[in-house]
């Protein structure tokens, strides 16, 4: 038994090393591609930075800014300068926020994280429950309603959903604030947790509602397959029924795929957050991404791109590890 444990530990180490290698090469590739895209972008960072003051800033001053940022060096040189600084842990300074990129990302991510975490949990729990209910009532009205709802939502753009919620709950009913992460005009130290929560509810709801459909439809189909499987038939033949049957054979067999799907949805979650934050002017990472892109803030944009890649990669890696450690059929098969 002990040697078997050692063996599996060794295999785990090997798998982790392999994963780290894959992450490193992924990040390198993403950096290069993003850099090429950004340096060919029509947005002139200097012009974007100066904005309305364009008329009062002379040509010489503009060139001075450009050379201060190193924008007149060849792109390859710029890239290697940025890359070697990155390897030393320095992601550079954001042009628009005049703050180190790591700080901007850190601040923005904290407010985005609560938003994404809430909607991730809500969409996961609601979606899973809806999927289970639909499958248990396959073909009946409850199933039809849930399916109809999911199909409708699957084809609903996030920003549109956000606008609808905004109109109904913020404008008509006035239950929630229209925008921002905290009340406007309030001092930072006066902002309460309740204020933050009230501002987070609508964007989080938008993200959750849109995220429900994929997990619900997936769970529904998976549970239908499980309920039609030979082993559920045999469990019934052994006299199992009702909740015991569902708990022993149904739940176990659908929980893992659902969890996996939910962890691999980090990418969509982030994409949704970009749109939802934009609609609600919520000061999160998504909004910072849009700002950085529109105003040519290359260090911030690249920083966010790399950070997002790690975030999505982490989600996929968690799903992978979960499968490997929980599903007995995967344990025996080595490599990741």
């Amino acid at each position: 038994m002990r040697s078997r444990d050692n063996h599996s530990l060794l295999r785990l180490m090997k798998a982790l090393l392999w994963k780290a290698l894959r992450l490193a090469s992924l990040l390198a590739a993403i950096s290069i591609v993003s850099f090429i895209l950004v340096s060919n972008s029509p947005v002139d960072p200097v012009q974007a930075y100066i904005g309305a003051d364009m008329l009062v800033v002379s040509h010489e001053q503009r060139e001075l800014i450009a050379s201060y940022w190193g924008l007149d060096d060849p792109p390859a040189e710029q890239f290697f300068r940025w890359g070697s600084a990155l390897l030393h842990g320095d992601m550079g300074v954001s042009m628009i926020y005049q703050q180190p990129v790591t700080e901007v990302i850190g601040e923005r991510f904290v407010s985005s994280l609560s938003l994404m975490a809430v909607s991730w949990l809500l969409s996961g729990i609601i979606g899973f429950t809806a999927g289970v209910l639909a499958a248990m009532n396959k073909g009946r009205w409850l199933d039809r309603i849930i399916k109809w709802y999911c199909y409708a939502l699957a084809s609903t753009p996030t920003f549109w959903m956000g606008l609808v919620l905004l109109i109904v709950f913020a404008v008509w009913l006035g239950w929630f604030p229209v925008a921002l992460g905290v009340p406007a005009g309030k001092l930072a130290e006066d902002v309460s947790l309740l204020d933050r929560l009230r501002h987070m509810i609508l964007p989080a709801l938008t993200l959750s509602i849109v995220g429900i459909s994929s997990i619900a439809l997936h769970t529904r189909q998976k549970l239908i397959d499980v309920l039609e499987s030979d082993y559920v038939w045999f469990a019934k033949a052994r006299g199992e029924k009702g909740f015991t049957l569902f708990f022993r054979h149904g739940l176990r067999n659908i929980a893992l795929p659902a969890l996996t799907l939910q962890f691999t949805s980090f990418g969509e979650l982030f994409g949704g957050a970009v749109l939802a934050e934009q609609v609600f002017s919520y000061p999160g990472l998504g909004q910072a991404t849009v700002e950085a892109g529109l105003r040519g803030d290359v260090p911030l944009l690249l920083g966010i791109v790399l950070f997002t890649a790690i975030f999505v990669f982490a989600g996929n890696a968690i799903a992978d590890v979960l499968y490997r450690t929980v599903d007995p059929r995967m344990k025996e098969r080595g490599t990741l």
Binding site: S229, D230, W233, A237, R238, N253, D327, P328
Partner: peptide, 23 residues
């Protein structure tokens, strides 16, 4: 039959697919 299944009446199925893969 739903009362007696598994108690008075049992079946031996055909193949391993009748066993739950996760238990």
């Amino acid at each position: 039959v739903s009362e007696l299944r598994g108690k008075e009446i049992a079946i031996v199925p055909q193949s391993v697919t009748y066993l739950d893969p996760l238990i």
